[in-house]
Design a binder for these strands. Sequence first.
DNA 1: GAGCATATTCTATATATGTCGAACATGTCA
DNA 2: TGACATGTTCGACATATATAGAATATGCTC
Lengths: 146, 146
Amino acid sequence: MSDSVEEQKIRKNERKIEMTEVEWEIMRIIWDIEPCSAGAVQEELARRRMSSEGISGKAYSTVKTTMDRMAEKGFLQIEKVRNLQLFKSCISEVDAKQREFRKMLKRAFNGALTPMMQFLIEHEGISTDEASQLRELVRKSEEKAK
Amino acid sequence: MSDSVEEQKIRKNERKIEMTEVEWEIMRIIWDIEPCSAGAVQEELARRRMSSEGISGKAYSTVKTTMDRMAEKGFLQIEKVRNLQLFKSCISEVDAKQREFRKMLKRAFNGALTPMMQFLIEHEGISTDEASQLRELVRKSEEKAK
DNA sequence: GAGCATATTCTATATATGTCGAACATGTCA
DNA sequence: TGACATGTTCGACATATATAGAATATGCTC
């Protein structure tokens, strides 16, 4: 029994949305320069990759295809101006970070913050500086909560 | 110009190793009951999925295929006993957590801890309880570092 | 030794992702 | 108006992942 087109669409929209590495690279650029064309993103991507890791960029069509797919997934929004397309983000940076963080937390720490913190201190070599900074942050947040 | 088989193998081994969601599910079980057979993992997976999310398990062959691939990737190790295979983990829980955490940190926070902490306090609604617990942890870690 | 239970291997499909070339469209400027 | 620069669309292929049925092997029990 094959599903109807409708059912497939529903499944498609319901499917868990995760950003891949390349998608993150693109999103970061979009957040910086939106609204922008695919070409602009492709160039900026090449620039960043070159300067940060010395690796080559990607072909225009590669970037464009990825961006089109991101639009389908609801990460991006396309606005037509004449025959051009301008891309804008549909999710905020905060939102994306939150999703990424929570995914990690769920996978690796059963969704709980405290065990993660414990882990950080035990295994991630949190520096004294970072620790006191952290303590400061926590103190402030406690104050604010009062 | 196509690559030689050797080159393909090298690329294969060099490729970035990430655990997918299903692989995490399986790894968690392995860490708990290793050394173990694929069948045992499949049964335990069904049990956990049912009790935690009320969703169905997966066919034996699905689990087995995934586990074989995990062995290829170096997550698992197969030990033959007669005609049976016993699986063991090749990476520790700590190691896996570390990888997952760092991947998230790199993607979403440019690899730096402090911005992540800031983010947590601002957006993840760290509770007063968690905050003081955290503060306690930090205090202890500072003492130890002395 | 025949058959059952269990395990392994092989094969196959669908979807996602990464990658890109080629063809086609169109606004601009000499 | 015709060439060029820039964009868009289409199609294609490789690999990864998720999924699972079918065929095959084999140890054990009666």
